[in-house]
């Protein structure tokens, strides 16, 4: 990653995942499995509730998939809120109160364990902030700003990020340009006064550039991307080959 000596910008805006906070080699599918495993263990240990990790994983993937597809039917510039996904998952899994909260806590715990701080970028941003540049984070993510602040605070306690904008909080995404319009308005900045840094070609480069922002792309190593894809493929094969679990239920031949 080649960073300029100085940003020459009034505001430096940074993407969060795979930019400020780096994901490891695990695919999203694997991460969801890890979350499901942790949630299942905690539900059993703390509440005596038995839930198959595969059922939790399926609930997570089904809820996310259909939430985003519903969103695309009516407001494709917006985003889904994680709290709503947890609510739907809890209904499907028959959980309420503290047991339902485990779904949220397991997600954050696994995210924390699989993320690491992008130390060179954070050091550069700290220098920028020290010289008077405002540093903000802008993320297309279903989490609210408070959750991102929690992750940033845990993984890089002295980070220089002054404000966090998430697509879930503002119901507007980077990839459609709507979130950048919010950022420009809230920051009171002209597009040319902002340097945006991120990894995604569309959301972090093409769209902000079309809106007049300056951009800088950080690219994750090819070998890492290849490992993630291999990991995702392996997860798909394992999932396809695994027989669905049998449940006993009155009135069903599956009993």
């Amino acid at each position: 990653m080649l960073l300029p000596e100085r940003s020459a910008a009034r505001v430096v805006s940074c993407d969060v995942f795979d930019t400020l906070l780096l994901r490891d080699h695990r695919s999203e599918s694997r991460r969801f499995r890890d979350i499901a495993g942790l949630a299942a263990r905690r539900l059993a240990a703390e509440h005596g509730i038995q839930r198959d990790p595969a059922a939790i994983w399926t609930a997570r993937t089904e809820v996310q998939r259909h939430a985003y597809r519903a969103l695309d039917l009516a407001r494709p510039t917006g985003d889904v809120r994680f709290a709503d996904m947890v609510d739907a998952m809890a209904r499907i899994l028959g959980l309420a109160g503290p047991a339902a909260a485990i779904l949220h806590e397991a997600e954050i715990a696994v995210e924390r364990s699989q993320l690491s701080a992008n130390a060179p970028l954070l050091a550069w941003l700290a220098a920028e902030a020290w010289s008077g540049t405002r540093v903000i984070a802008v993320s297309d993510i279903y989490h609210e700003a408070g959750t991102i602040a929690l992750l940033l605070g845990a993984l890089c306690p002295r980070h220089p990020v002054a404000r966090i904008y998430t697509s879930a909080d503002h119901d507007a995404t980077k990839r459609t340009g709507a979130l950048f319009a919010t950022v420009l308005r809230e920051e009171g900045a002209a597009p040319g006064e902002i340097l945006h840094i991120g990894d995604d070609h569309r959301a972090d480069v093409a769209i902000p550039r079309a809106l007049g922002l300056r951009t800088l792309q950080v690219v994750r190593p090819r070998h890492l991307i290849l490992r993630r894809r291999t990991d995702a493929l392996r997860a798909r094969i394992v999932s396809a080959l695994a027989p669905p679990p049998r449940y006993g239920r009155p009135g069903s031949r599956f009993a």
Partner: peptide, 20 residues
Amino acid sequence: AHVETLRPDDLHRVPAEAAR
């Protein structure tokens, strides 16, 4: 008749039963 046998706490089993 299958749908009529469902109960609220069966929801988490629906995807696995659908796969079967």
